[in-house]
């Protein structure tokens, strides 16, 4: 003879509908973290190791990279992923340690503002950067400016 006991009607938290930001935030951290390992180390390798290494870094080098669509996409990805990754990390720390609600709101607002400003500025630079400003000494410019 067996009996089945009804599930006790214990109080439980029910997930209200909508997006579960904590879950997606966590997944975002994992995915962007892996992507950033490739992007950042690739960036460091190309800038610091290949060719003349760190000595090659000047206006012409950066200008040349930012007029190449491949590096534009690379840098944009790095910018967005890293800033949102960092901001989400800061948000998590704020949630942990800001016990006062007002302090938490202010700090998280500041993090959000800084992130948005930096992302907009950075994206603008990546896509509107002029590698050949008029009137600049030609020896500082990328070779393609002078019609080489």
């Amino acid at each position: 003879m067996t009996t089945s006991i009804e599930s006790p009607r214990a109080a439980r938290t029910v997930r209200r509908g909508g997006v579960n930001w904590e879950k997606w935030g966590w997944i975002y951290m994992r995915v962007s973290g892996v992507a950033l390992v490739v992007l950042i180390f690739g960036h460091l390798f190309v800038n610091l190791m290949i060719g003349d290494g760190v000595k090659a870094l000047d206006f012409a080098f950066v200008g040349g990279k930012l007029s190449n669509p491949f590096w534009q996409v690379w840098d944009t990805l790095m910018l967005w992923l890293a800033l949102i990754h960092g901001a989400n990390g800061m948000r998590t720390i704020t949630n942990d340690y800001a016990h006062n609600r007002l302090v938490g709101v202010v700090v998280k607002g500041a993090i959000l503002a800084a992130t948005v400003v930096l992302i907009i500025l950075g994206t603008l630079v990546v896509y509107t950067f002029d590698p050949c400003p008029a009137g600049a000494p030609t020896d500082l410019l990328p070779t393609f400016c002078t019609g080489g």
């Binding site: 599930s7 439980r12 938290t13 997930r15 579960n20 904590e22 966590w26």
Partner: peptide, 16 residues
């Protein structure tokens, strides 16, 4: 009851 427990731990104060 796995679903119930996973719902509870999917909370803001849960596993994440």
């Amino acid at each position: 009851g796995s679903q119930v427990r996973m719902d509870i731990l999917n909370d803001q104060e849960g596993v994440w």
